[in-house]
Simulated scan of single mutants.
Amino acid sequence: MASVPTTLQRYIVPGGVLSDTGHLLRERGQRGLEAVVLWVGTVEDDTTATVTHAIRPGQVAYRDAGGGCAVEVPPDALSDVIRTLPSNHFVLVRVHTHPGPAYHSKVDDTNMLIGHEGAISIVVPDFAAAAMELSACSVNQLTHSRGWVELTPAQVRARFEVLA
């Protein structure tokens, strides 16, 4: 398989990956900075992917005098990630933090690391201060005809299987 299929509907996520993600995000959040983590994994078939690990790519976090925050992954850092992916592994999901409530902002809409139809972007509230729980996050799917669309809690439960 040469790319992530646009038909993915189910993500299998080991609990350890969720825990690692929270830790990687929280490290930056404790300094008042947003952070990005990428979920990398394998595609099992046209509808199912398995997340194997979380990585924090090189990134630049901004905080202005008014308390506004942003984070971006420079193109060379993303190229480094892609170049070092194991065979048959893909960047499946972008996960990042916000200082307050979880929502997909206008900056998030344009600062895409993944942009294929069906791409998933997860926003974690409060700089990931609490344990990482998908039910507390804003989980969004890219639909080229509509932009980023937030999944309902029921859709998140149906599409993400978190393993113990």
Rank of each mutant, 00 (worst) to 15 (best):
H96C: 02
Y11L: 12
H116S: 09
V4K: 01
R83M: 08
A102P: 02
E27S: 08
C69V: 11
T84C: 14
V107H: 11
H96Q: 08
Q141E: 04
L151F: 11
V37N: 05
T152L: 12
R159H: 02
I120D: 04
T48F: 08
Q141F: 01
E161V: 04
Y103S: 09
S138V: 13
R94W: 01
D108Q: 08
G29Q: 02
P75S: 09
S135W: 07
H89V: 12
D45W: 12
G147K: 12
V60C: 07
P74K: 12
A129N: 12
A119M: 07
V43L: 03
T52E: 14
R56N: 00
C69G: 02
R159W: 08
A129S: 14
T50A: 09
A61R: 04
S79N: 10
G58W: 05
G32H: 08
Q9P: 09
G32I: 11
G68K: 09
Y62T: 13
H98L: 14
L24W: 07
A128P: 01
L134V: 13
V107R: 07
E161W: 01
V43F: 00
P99K: 08
N140D: 13
T47H: 07
L85S: 14
A54V: 10
T84I: 13
I55P: 00
N111W: 01
E150I: 10
A61H: 01
T50K: 01
R83C: 09
G15S: 09
I120P: 02
G67Q: 06
D126K: 15
V40Y: 02
A65V: 12
A54W: 04
N88T: 14
V123W: 03
G67Y: 10
H116W: 14
Q30Y: 11
E27M: 10
G58K: 08
L25H: 03
